[in-house]
Design a protein around this nucleic acid. Structure first.
Length: 480
DNA sequence: ATGTGC
């Protein structure tokens, strides 16, 4: 596949034209600022590789936060036919159902600032963070973990960790129905048992933000957002359990791809026909890991509410700590898309991309029926984050939008730059309080390691995929 | 992302 030329179609879209063995073309959402950040990115080649996979429907897509990943690029979206398409663990990634949620508060910055330090200290002590972190306050046996894996957030409600009326603010109501814990290995179960309700490491975080700009008054009102309001963002995934599921099935799919004679441009794209036993097993295990991640975020929310109650001496309900939405970032599932004017069901892979339902979509809860789905886009540690709403144009991305800023530098490169700096001090100077479990992780996560999220969001919104509802500014966070 | 590197 020589000479992968990017052709600009309009101010917000680049095209990779189809060249054998590609089965389709690629679209990268990028304005000129994003295009400059792409360079000769390996991720573009990875997107072209995805276009070679059997049964792909429509173009393969990349959001503006595209960067290099395992097999598929992060920021990639690809649809596969239910009858002759494939499913690939590389199309989901190692952190199955890594995702983000936003909690509203009825507090403003001046209510929180005087208590910010003790609030963060309380959150850091209530929520285990860092590589290998375990939750000593929650003892669950294998039988109960099976229920978590099968029923997702329904388990959280039954155990009193979440309320039933916030389930509709979870993507898929917090439960992927195709989950089958029987396909999750003993090793994965073992890793997952002590990790429910832990933050993890890497780019995972819990953050307090202030709404500093309203993009659309009417949408913001429907979302319950207003200027100077404090919001909470929680970003985490399926921890060691999901990682192990991916690892297990990458190996399964290597031999499956060979058995089915699927030609792979890259071994990391190992996959199997959706109709195969291997695919059924992966989908069952991956969905179970996705349910683990929903519950993980439910529990972190429960501990967050407990910290707010302890510091502000009021119930979390009276502090207004309600769920705006919980979005999945890394997942493959059967979804309806519109392709060539027909509504069809496909196996949709989103890897570092957020679902973004358009206004009127029957999958939206009543509250968001006319607004479109809340899309939460975290930036780097120092710059903005955004709350968007899925817009009418979202059908062209199979109802998907960007999921973050996207890495600009590798972790190694970031660490090298951070050696000459004091990341904690720099954040403090920018009036952002941080408690981090690891200095190394903080170095990997320095703001300079990320693209400017505003350019990512502008690209997606100018292309008509989503609308800006609010821009947020971070004031404090805990990091793994 | 990850009991961080086969």
């Amino acid at each position: 596949m020589e000479g992968l030329a990017l052709k600009r179609i309009d101010p917000y879209r680049l095209e990779i034209s189809r060249k054998p063995p590609m089965r389709t073309w690629g679209i990268i959402y990028a304005n000129t600022a994003i295009e400059r950040m792409l360079g000769n990115d390996e991720a573009i080649k990875q997107l072209a590789n995805v276009a070679c996979l059997p049964g792909i429907v429509g173009p393969c897509l990349a959001m503006p936060d595209i960067h290099w990943g395992y097999g598929f690029p992060i920021g990639g979206v690809a649809a596969f036919s239910k009858s002759d398409g494939i499913v690939s663990p590389g199309g989901v990634g190692y952190d199955i159902n890594c995702g983000i949620r936003c909690l509203r508060t009825s507090l403003e910055q001046h209510d929180v600032t005087p208590k910010l330090k003790i609030l963060l200290a309380s959150l850091f002590s209530n929520i285990p963070a860092g590589v290998g972190a375990i939750n000593k306050n929650l003892k669950i046996n294998r039988k109960e973990l099976q229920r978590v894996l099968r029923t997702g957030s329904n388990w959280s409600v039954q155990r009193g960790f979440a309320s039933s009326d916030e389930m509709e603010a979870h993507e898929e109501l917090g439960c992927i129905e195709s989950a089958d814990p029987g396909y999750v290995s003993e090793k994965a179960i073992e890793r997952g048992l002590p990790q429910l309700g832990t933050l993890g490491s890497g780019n995972h975080f819990l953050e307090l933000d202030v709404v500093d700009l309203i993009g659309d008054e009417s949408l913001a009102k429907c979302f319950g957002l207003y200027k100077d309001q404090v919001l909470i963002l929680i970003h985490s995934g399926s921890r060691g359990l999901g990682h192990q599921v991916c690892d297990d099935y990458v190996h399964t799919m290597m031999s499956a791809a060979q058995r089915f004679g699927i030609e792979l441009p890259d071994r990391q794209l190992a996959c199997a026909p959706i109709t195969s036993k291997e695919a059924q097993a992966y989908l069952g295990a991956m969905s179970a890991a996705a349910n683990f991640a929903f519950v993980n975020r439910d529990l972190i929310t429960y501990y967050t509410r407990a910290s707010f109650e302890a510091i502000f001496r009021k119930s979390w309900e009276s502090l207004g700590l309600s769920l705006l939405y919980d979005c999945c970032h890394n997942i493959a599932k059967f979804e309806h898309i519109i392709w060539q004017d027909k509504r069809i069901e496909v196996c949709l892979h989103r890897k570092g991309a957020t679902r973004a339902l358009a206004p009127g979509d029957p999958r939206l809860p009543w509250r968001y029926k006319d607004t479109g789905q809340p899309v939460i886009v975290p930036g780097d540690m120092a710059r903005s984050s955004y709350i968007l709403a899925g817009a009418e144009g979202a059908h062209e991305t199979f109802f998907s939008a960007c999921h973050g800023a996207g890495r600009l530098l590798s972790r190694q490169q970031a660490k090298k730059i951070a050696r000459k700096k004091n990341p904690l001090e720099e954040l403090k100077r920018r009036h952002i309080q941080v408690i981090a479990a690891s200095r190394t992780t903080l170095a990997e996560e320095i703001p300079e390691a990320y693209k400017d999220v505003s350019e990512v969001v502008n690209t997606i919104c100018d292309a008509g995929i989503a609308k800006i509802v609010a821009r947020l500014r971070p004031i404090g966070m805990i990091k793994g």
